[in-house]
Write a protein that binds this DNA or RNA. Structure first.
Length: 278
DNA sequence: ATTAATGTTCAGAA
DNA sequence: TTTCTGAACATTAA
């Protein structure tokens, strides 16, 4: 479930192995059970990208951006179970895409691994890229939102605040896990209508977004019990031990000892403390 | 041995 | 316009 902190961790992990290096190979892995979506075809990508230098590795919301000196770029969407790896894949049958790079005679290799295969790897020309990045379908990055930005974005919808936090057109980067953790930190009930939050509560929400996401990045993201998410070195993240509510239904709230509750909103699980969140 | 649940995005319907 | 539903897919727990 790579959300903003996990994707940011991936970006930081692969950056030293890509930036400033020249692309010498790109292929879809033949051992994959099913081929992952790569657009356009790997052969077409190779014609345009081989020999180019990687200038910049970045993140846009939950997407990884790999820019070349030509202005073209790879855009990787891990979705549910996608990982960027520089070593030791969890298994070989779910390796999907491989990049080979060279710098001063030193070779490096980066993989996209994806168990469920919902992730995508796209190669965009410069002009397509500017279009993709400027579009209104993705809101401002959650880490760049000011309290004022939140007030404006949330004022547009009466959906429950938890559901609004997942709407990537309002603000991009927060997913199901961190939405619950953020609302717990802010003391806000997940069912409260987004547009009805007082200015005071929006300020608390803004602070909670900053605290939770930065803390999660510091711990290199969350590896849940299914063990799917790993950093670029195939190591577990560490933030799962700091989760206050996510996947903790029935556990005692750390503050008031009330049992944490699980409800379903928009077909997704939400976890919260009924006493601490109003 | 089925069935539900997992979380992200998008297309299409309400 | 806004909101909701289902599908893409693999794996595991019930």
């Amino acid at each position: 479930m790579p959300e903003l902190p996990e994707v940011e961790t991936m970006v930081r992990g692969i950056r030293p192995h890509l930036e400033g290096r020249t692309l010498t190979g790109f292929r879809r892995m033949p051992c994959s059970c099913r081929p992952i979506l790569v657009e356009p075809s790997p052969a077409a990508v190779r014609r345009r990208a081989i020999g180019r230098t990687v200038t910049q590795i970045g993140r846009r919301a939950k997407r990884i951006l790999l820019k070349l000196d030509s202005g073209d770029a790879f855009v990787i969407e891990p979705r549910m179970t996608g990982l960027m790896l520089i070593a030791d894949p969890p298994d070989c049958e779910h390796l999907r895409v491989e990049w080979l790079l060279e710098s001063g005679g030193r070779l490096s290799r980066v993989w996209f691994w994806d168990r469920r295969g919902l992730g995508t790897v796209r190669f965009l020309k410069r002009e397509e890229l500017t279009e993709l990045l400027s579009i209104g379908r993705l809101g401002r990055d959650a880490l760049e939102m000011t309290a004022d930005d939140w007030r404006t974005a949330l004022g547009r919808t009466i959906r429950p605040i938890k559901v609004a936090l997942l709407d990537q057109s309002l603000s991009a980067g927060i997913g199901n896990l961190y939405a619950s953790e953020i609302l717990y930190r802010a003391g806000i009930h997940p069912a409260r209508p987004a547009a009805r939050l007082t200015a005071e509560r929006v300020k608390r929400l803004h602070a909670a977004v900053q605290e939770v996401l930065h803390e999660a990045i510091r711990h290199e993201g969350s590896t849940l019990s299914d063990g799917t998410y790993r950093n670029a070195l195939n190591q577990n993240g560490g933030y799962q031990s700091s989760h206050c509510v996510y996947d903790r239904a029935g556990d005692a709230c750390a503050i008031c000892r009330s049992p944490i509750r699980r409800i379903v909103q928009a077909q997704r699980s939400t976890f919260y403390c009924p006493k601490c969140q109003k």
